[in-house]
Amino acid sequence: MLPEIRANVTLDCKGLACPMPIVRTKKAIDQLKAGHVIEVQATDKGSLADMQGWAKNTGHHYLGTVEEGNLLKHYIRKSKLSETKEEKQHPYTICHEELATKMTGEGKITLIDVREPAEYAFNRIKGAISIPLGELEDRIKELNPDDEIFVICRTGSRSDLACQLLTEKGFKKVKNVETGMTGWTGPTEQDNSK
C-alpha cells in the first residue's frame, strides 16, 4: 500500500484533454500558498510527461504521480517565490557602440548569430557566425571556451538563452549583445540575391 499522500487542494481534470490539465493546474497553483501541495486528477496519459516538464520549467516541485487504473494523480508542491525560476538573465552584456569598437580593433573577436538561417541570410553583421539557437548545443565543439564570445539575435532574448547555455558548458567570456540586431546601425551584409 502506498502511504496516503496529503494535498492541500485537489483539482479535478478528469476527462480533459491536453492542454487543459496544465492550464487548470497553472491557474490553481497561482491561487495556492507557497509550500502547499496540489493533487491533480487527470485521465489524459500525456499529462504525466507534460506535468513533469511544466514543473521543471516553472520551478514548482513535482513530487510524483500515483496511478489508479486509468486515473493519474499528480502531486505538485508550489515553490516559494525565491525558488521559482525567474527570467534568468545572463549578467554580462555589451552595447552596440562597444561591439562596433571591438570589431574595428586589432584583436580577433568571435560573434555568434543565433537567429534562424533565413534571418541571418537577409541581414547580418559582417563576420558573424551563424549558429541557430536550436543547433548551439550540438555545434558547441566549433567554439573555444576560452575565447571572448559575443552572442547576438534579433532582440537579445534568444542570445540571452544562448549565453546561459554557453556559460553552463564552461565558456568563461561570453557577452550578450544588448537589443540584438534591432537598432544596429553599423555595417551589415546579406547573401547575394539570386
Binding site: P19, I22, D50, G53, G134
Partner: peptide, 9 residues
C-alpha cells in the same frame, strides 16, 4: 522548433 505549450500559457 520546439517550445512546449506549457511554456506558452
Amino acid at each position: 522548433i520546439n517550445i512546449p505549450y506549457f511554456n506558452l500559457l
